[in-house]
Computed example of a mutant assay.
Amino acid sequence: MPNTTWKIGYLNCADTAILSASAQVGTKPVTLLVDPHPKRRWSAGLTGNAWVNLVWPEPQTIDCVALMGSSHTWETGRCQITASDMPGNADLYDSGDIPARVDPRFGYMLHVLPQPVTTRSLRLYLSDPAVAETRGGRLYVGPLWTPRYGPPLGEEWGRAPTGTQTVGRAGQTFITPGANPRATTFGLDFISLTDERTHLRELQRICGSENDVLVISDSSDPNPGDVSIWGLLKNLQPPKRTYGNYWSSIFSITERL
């Protein structure tokens, strides 16, 4: 059955946008939203309401807006996304005021547009009366690739702990604490020649092992953060032709903290 909900984003248009915000703390400017480390977070200060604006010199096609390291709560966090081609023009897209659906275990605010929008500007409104400070770590704004077929059976999804255990001479076990990021390994099969050239090669060219990738395993899930990983490709392997003009590739991604 053709895939409609498994998606991957690899071209982050936020990195080429001119960013502005309703407010920012001097040591936590809005430009931290394009810093690859989500723990370095933009802060709008002691407020539960803020907005971030993105402007591009040329039109960009947008499928998804995601904010990692969001300060929203699950119960009361809300957001609104609007896009307009030129200042003062009617909106090309308006999500309306909707729940942000941020699970605090993961801190992902993720919104997939019903249809791609090509725009020169986008604004993200954030509100939550339950938080004293509005913050955000890493912003993804860009297109999504939806392969015709999602990963087959065999997809792995779990944790990649970085802590270590050392056994001393007397037999005691000493723990060196570390981060415990999520990780996934999956394969994509029956990738058409067009998708191999348009998406698979571009994903490896743009991201390699240095730039972040957003994987959404089910865009229809009511808890998007629970089924999504934003992180770095590990053990990158070249695509393989498996049958006729169809290709396959295996990916390993570890969440970036």
Rank of each mutant, 00 (worst) to 15 (best):
T47C: 08
L19C: 00
L214G: 03
G158W: 07
K240G: 00
D94A: 11
T198E: 11
G225D: 04
Y243K: 00
P114G: 09
G208V: 10
P36M: 06
Y246K: 02
G48W: 01
N180E: 11
S228C: 10
D91G: 01
H111M: 06
R138I: 01
M109T: 06
R197L: 06
Q165K: 15
G225M: 04
R169V: 08
R159E: 12
T27Y: 02
L126Q: 13
G137R: 01
W145F: 09
M1G: 15
L232M: 02
I191F: 01
W74Y: 15
R182V: 06
W74M: 14
V213C: 05
T146E: 15
Q115R: 13
L139V: 09
L232T: 10
H72R: 08
T119W: 06
M109Q: 12
Q24D: 13
P99Q: 13
P29S: 15
Y246T: 12
G154I: 05
N89Y: 11
L19G: 04
G9M: 00
V102C: 06
P38I: 06
G158H: 07
A44D: 05
G158T: 09
G77E: 02
L124H: 04
L232C: 00
K28W: 00
T134W: 05
D94W: 05
R205N: 11
T16H: 08
G163F: 13
P2G: 00
R159N: 04
A160K: 09
V65M: 02
V25W: 09
N180I: 13
L139P: 03
V117F: 08
A100C: 01
L124I: 11
N180T: 15
G77K: 04
V215H: 02
S249P: 07
L11R: 14
A179V: 10
W51I: 09
D94Q: 11
A14L: 01
G77Y: 03
T198V: 08
T173K: 09
Q115H: 09
A90N: 12
C13Y: 11
P152V: 00
G171Q: 07
E75V: 10
D85Y: 12
K39A: 14
A21I: 01
T16S: 15
I216E: 04
P143E: 14
W6M: 03
T61L: 07
A21V: 02
L67K: 04
S252T: 14
S248R: 14
P224S: 15
T146R: 11
R138K: 12
R120N: 12
Q60S: 10
E133M: 10
R148D: 15
G26A: 15
G178R: 03
N3K: 02
F174D: 08
D94N: 14
Y125P: 00
S71F: 09
G107Q: 06
Q237M: 02
L122K: 00
S217N: 08
L110G: 01
D85L: 13
T73Y: 14
T185P: 05
E133L: 05
V131C: 02
R182N: 03
E156W: 13
A90T: 11
V55F: 12
N49K: 15
L193G: 14
T184F: 01
E202F: 07
I98P: 05
Y149V: 09
I175T: 13
W56R: 01
G150V: 03
S249D: 10
L11P: 05
G168H: 09
P104I: 12
V215K: 02
S95H: 09
